[in-house]
Design a binder for these strands. Structure first.
Lengths: 195, 195
DNA sequence: ACTTTGTTTAACAATTATGTTAAATACCGG
DNA sequence: CCGGTATTTAACATAATTGTTAAACAAAGT
């Protein structure tokens, strides 16, 4: 009973991710997704049964990847500066690929409170916050609540990509310039938060 | 033929703003809005004819207020540091009141390109960017493209508020702490970008 | 060739959201 | 109390979206 895998189920998910997380089209319909994937709408229901389930799967995978990334970066045994550089490098790349991803996680997060968070927190975030605090004592980072540091860090990475269209119109950034500026930001962000 | 103003039209708009810009409910229906405002759904159509028109009005007023705020802050004849402080103070307050407002403007902005932007740009943004550049030459701000400075500034203000729920769960920030941390940020942001 | 799985087509039911209309009721000012 | 405006109620039409089903077709393996 060989179930052959044509990759179409994955194609549909990837397309949904592109539409939701890259294009930021919050109320794309199953038809929109099917069209973008170049398949029949029925197939979307065939594989996922309902729009909600497709949506949920896609968001869950986004959460999982987010967790993985945190894992990878924060638990590597390297110096703080290296870790920080890698953190910025990896996250910026992901944010550029999927600017709206975190936003979907945010709006989903408001509904379901989770307990799994504790695991991530204890395993990765808490130790990293401690490292940040140590760097503050060493005078390498401006002293504040380490959580303020984290919020600033994410903000500097995520928001400019999210507000791309506003930046282009209000700051007169051209289509060609924008990716270059985002690349530059990796260094700029590091310099802003670490001396 | 006195047309008496009961303020209901405004109530509906304010409620829509609350739902869209504060609660971030991107696909709230006319029914949702009517319920939240405590009026009959028919009344929404009576005043605004269609959901699109209500939505458009609300977003346009958001844009207008945004423009006004920029006007107010950026064209006042005070020192750069004072201007910067005021900028952060005023904008943070607005962002806290309406965290999702810019996001709606962003998604709207992607559809309609505007020419009115040039007016705002020439009148306020361009001169301010020049001021920023001057401060960079004076060594008060780290030298980069002034537009990077602007993007960082907005990011530091907007994103932490936008990602409130994520911050609360992942950084273990309590409901009580959050507003305090946001208030603290005004100073923190200033210190981060100005020496 | 036969079978299985993947995919499309078409037709349909159910639901939800939008928008319209007409009549009934509530409220307020003169 | 009268007249007009504000608001509600109810009923309805329409459109969009979702979801289901059955049949046909395509492709690939054995």
């Amino acid at each position: 009973m060989a179930v052959r895998d044509t990759g179409t189920e994955q194609l549909i998910k990837d397309t949904a991710k592109r539409i939701f997380f890259f294009e930021g089209r919050f109320h794309a319909t199953t038809q929109d997704i099917a069209d973008a994937a170049g398949v029949n709408r029925t197939l979307v229901h065939y594989y996922f049964r309902s729009r909600d389930i497709l949506f949920e799967q896609v968001v869950n995978e986004a959460k999982e990847q987010l967790r993985q990334t945190l894992d990878n970066v924060l638990s590597s045994k390297v110096s703080f500066t290296e870790k920080l550089r890698k953190f910025i490098d990896v996250f910026m790349d992901e944010i550029i690929a999927y600017p709206y991803r975190e936003l979907f996680v945010i709006t989903e997060n408001k509904r379901h409170e989770k307990q799994e968070v504790d695991l991530i927190y204890d395993a990765h975030i808490k130790p990293f916050l401690a490292e940040v605090k140590a760097e503050m004592h060493a005078g390498k980072i401006t002293s504040t609540d380490p959580r303020q540091f984290m919020m600033s860090l994410f903000a500097l990475m995520a928001y400019p990509v999210l507000s791309e269209s506003l930046n282009k119109t209000f700051l007169k950034i051209s289509d060609a310039e924008f990716p270059k500026l985002m690349k530059q930001r990796k260094q700029i962000i590091f310099d802003m938060i670490y001396r």
